[in-house]
């Protein structure tokens, strides 16, 4: 039987959630027995080559490219999971949501104490995706099926969620796996 396929991506995240996924340690061998990875930074496959059972999303959407990638994931995956606080509610990047976009860009590119920018311009290369008016959690952009909170969620939580999903069992994350203080 063909193995189910999993895709992952990091949008406006820090890759910490991906690192946490790698923290499942030797269980990664089991995981590879269970699934094939499709588009993912883990294997550096850049484009979807097949329909996937599960898509893991790290990070929310802070620019238009994030939106396109997320929509692409929605189109290619049966189940989408928001992994980590950035994906579920914007997380740290969403702190900027309390400030006008112009102030953020001015601080980053013009006025910040460590900025050296003699041109006085805000970067504007057509290659650069345009930044959104605010950082959106994933579920405000596409339908998300599951949410795993944590910054990052622990390897055990990710493992428990993934294996349950892949074996068709209900996802039941005990309190200890979601408790962070």
């Amino acid at each position: 039987m063909e193995k189910p396929k999993v895709a992952t991506t990091s949008l406006a995240g820090c890759f910490g959630c991906h690192m946490s996924l790698l923290d499942i340690d030797e269980r990664i061998l089991q995981l590879i027995d269970l699934v094939d990875f499709n588009k993912s930074p883990i294997n550096d496959i850049k484009t979807f080559t097949a329909r996937c059972a599960v898509g893991l999303i790290e990070g929310g959407c802070c620019n238009e490219e994030n939106v396109h990638v997320l929509q692409l994931f929605r189109e290619h995956c049966d189940i989408l999971i928001s992994v980590g606080d950035c994906a579920t509610m914007g997380g740290i990047p969403a702190w900027r949501n309390t400030l006008p976009l112009k102030e953020c860009l001015d601080e980053a590119y013009l006025n910040g104490p460590t900025v050296h920018n003699p041109s006085g311009l805000i970067p504007n290369d057509p290659e650069l995706p345009l930044i959104l008016n605010k950082v959106y959690p994933c579920h405000e952009v596409v339908k998300i099926d599951y949410f795993i909170p944590g910054c990052p969620p622990s390897a055990d939580a990710l493992w428990a969620a993934l294996t349950a999903l892949l074996s068709g069992k209900p996802v039941d994350l005990p309190y200890e796996l979601l408790k962070y203080d």
């Binding site: 939106v67 976009l101 504007n124 930044i131 008016n133 952009v141």
Partner: peptide, 27 residues
Amino acid sequence: KNFDPSFDLRAAVAEAEGLVGRKSAAI
């Protein structure tokens, strides 16, 4: 496609378009 109908990409980039002075090529 199971996108959220309330999300409006055009509106979400409008401010940035104004600030950098170009239109989004992607939309």
